Amino acid sequence: MADEEKLPPGWEKRMSRSSGRVYYFNHITNASQWERPSGN
């Protein structure tokens, strides 16, 4: 997916099972956040 290609290394887009909202998860640091991480 083009959107995921633009995410910084380690980040992936996921869907919250409880709320149905999109969030972002970093599998390197195990961090998660609602806001899209910047690629800069």
Rank of each mutant, 00 (worst) to 15 (best):
residue 35 E to C: 07
residue 30 N to S: 11
residue 28 I to K: 15
residue 3 D to V: 13
residue 39 G to I: 10
residue 24 Y to G: 01
residue 8 P to V: 01
residue 9 P to D: 10
residue 3 D to K: 10
residue 4 E to G: 08
residue 15 M to K: 10
residue 5 E to L: 09
residue 29 T to Q: 07
residue 1 M to A: 12
residue 7 L to C: 02
residue 36 R to P: 13
residue 7 L to G: 00
residue 31 A to G: 09
residue 38 S to C: 14
residue 13 K to E: 12
residue 3 D to W: 04
residue 33 Q to R: 05
residue 37 P to K: 00
residue 9 P to A: 11
residue 20 G to N: 08
residue 31 A to K: 12
residue 18 S to Y: 04
residue 8 P to H: 01
residue 10 G to H: 12
residue 21 R to L: 09
residue 20 G to L: 03
residue 23 Y to C: 04
residue 34 W to N: 15
residue 20 G to T: 03
residue 32 S to D: 02
residue 12 E to S: 08
residue 16 S to P: 03
residue 16 S to K: 06
residue 8 P to N: 02
residue 21 R to C: 12
residue 1 M to C: 12
residue 12 E to T: 13
residue 20 G to P: 05
residue 18 S to H: 04
residue 11 W to G: 01
residue 1 M to D: 04
residue 12 E to G: 04
residue 35 E to W: 06
residue 7 L to H: 01
residue 39 G to Q: 07
residue 30 N to W: 01
residue 17 R to Q: 10
residue 13 K to T: 13
residue 31 A to Q: 08
residue 21 R to S: 11
residue 24 Y to F: 09
residue 23 Y to S: 04
residue 38 S to G: 13
residue 10 G to R: 03
residue 33 Q to E: 03
residue 7 L to K: 00
residue 4 E to W: 05
residue 37 P to A: 01
residue 35 E to A: 09
residue 7 L to Q: 02
residue 27 H to Q: 14
residue 4 E to I: 09
residue 23 Y to R: 02
residue 2 A to E: 09
residue 12 E to A: 08
residue 9 P to C: 05
residue 14 R to S: 03
residue 35 E to I: 07
residue 7 L to W: 00
residue 19 S to E: 13
residue 39 G to W: 09
residue 11 W to I: 00
residue 19 S to G: 13
residue 14 R to M: 06
residue 4 E to F: 06
residue 16 S to R: 03
residue 25 F to E: 04
residue 6 K to W: 06
residue 1 M to T: 12
residue 27 H to S: 12
residue 39 G to M: 14
residue 29 T to S: 06
residue 18 S to W: 07
residue 27 H to E: 11
residue 33 Q to W: 01
residue 14 R to C: 00
residue 22 V to D: 02
residue 28 I to A: 15
residue 34 W to P: 10
residue 36 R to V: 11
residue 18 S to Q: 10
residue 3 D to E: 13
residue 39 G to P: 11
residue 21 R to P: 05
residue 31 A to V: 15
residue 37 P to V: 01
residue 29 T to L: 12
residue 33 Q to N: 02
residue 37 P to W: 00
residue 30 N to A: 07
residue 33 Q to M: 06
residue 5 E to Q: 12
residue 40 N to Q: 12
residue 30 N to K: 15
residue 15 M to W: 12
residue 21 R to G: 11
residue 10 G to K: 01
residue 38 S to N: 15
residue 16 S to D: 14
residue 37 P to R: 00
residue 32 S to Q: 14
residue 39 G to E: 15
residue 32 S to R: 14
residue 17 R to K: 15
residue 24 Y to R: 00
residue 6 K to V: 13
residue 28 I to G: 11
residue 14 R to I: 01
residue 17 R to N: 04
residue 35 E to S: 13
residue 17 R to T: 15
residue 17 R to D: 03
residue 38 S to A: 14
residue 38 S to V: 12
residue 7 L to E: 00
residue 9 P to L: 06
residue 1 M to G: 08
residue 24 Y to A: 01
residue 18 S to G: 07
residue 30 N to T: 04
residue 39 G to V: 11
residue 6 K to H: 10
residue 35 E to G: 06
residue 7 L to F: 11
residue 15 M to Y: 14
residue 2 A to M: 15
residue 5 E to S: 13
residue 20 G to Q: 14
residue 38 S to L: 13
residue 7 L to M: 07
residue 11 W to A: 01
residue 38 S to Y: 04
residue 32 S to M: 13
residue 23 Y to V: 05
residue 1 M to R: 07
residue 24 Y to K: 02
residue 18 S to M: 06
residue 9 P to K: 09
residue 34 W to E: 14
residue 38 S to F: 08
residue 3 D to S: 14
residue 25 F to H: 10
residue 7 L to R: 01
residue 27 H to V: 14
residue 13 K to F: 07
residue 26 N to P: 01
residue 34 W to H: 08
residue 40 N to K: 15
residue 37 P to E: 01
residue 10 G to D: 06
residue 26 N to G: 00
residue 30 N to M: 07
residue 22 V to L: 06
residue 11 W to E: 03
residue 37 P to T: 00
residue 6 K to R: 10
residue 37 P to G: 01
residue 9 P to E: 12
residue 6 K to E: 10
residue 27 H to K: 12
residue 37 P to H: 00
residue 3 D to N: 09
residue 32 S to F: 06
residue 14 R to D: 03
residue 36 R to M: 10
residue 20 G to R: 07
residue 1 M to F: 15
residue 9 P to M: 05
residue 8 P to T: 00
residue 12 E to Y: 03
residue 26 N to Q: 02
residue 30 N to G: 12
residue 6 K to T: 12
residue 14 R to N: 03
residue 5 E to F: 08
residue 17 R to L: 11
residue 6 K to F: 09
residue 11 W to C: 02
residue 4 E to L: 09
residue 17 R to I: 02
residue 17 R to C: 11
residue 36 R to S: 11
residue 26 N to L: 00
residue 4 E to S: 08
residue 27 H to N: 06
residue 4 E to D: 08
residue 14 R to A: 03
residue 1 M to S: 13
residue 23 Y to A: 03
residue 35 E to K: 14
residue 28 I to W: 07
residue 5 E to K: 10
residue 19 S to L: 08
residue 18 S to R: 09
residue 40 N to D: 14
residue 22 V to Q: 10
residue 35 E to Q: 09
residue 15 M to H: 02
residue 13 K to S: 08
residue 26 N to W: 00
residue 30 N to L: 07
residue 40 N to L: 13
residue 5 E to R: 08
residue 34 W to I: 09
residue 35 E to D: 14
residue 40 N to S: 13
residue 26 N to T: 00
residue 32 S to Y: 03
residue 16 S to N: 15
residue 36 R to D: 06
residue 23 Y to K: 07
residue 32 S to P: 03
residue 33 Q to L: 02
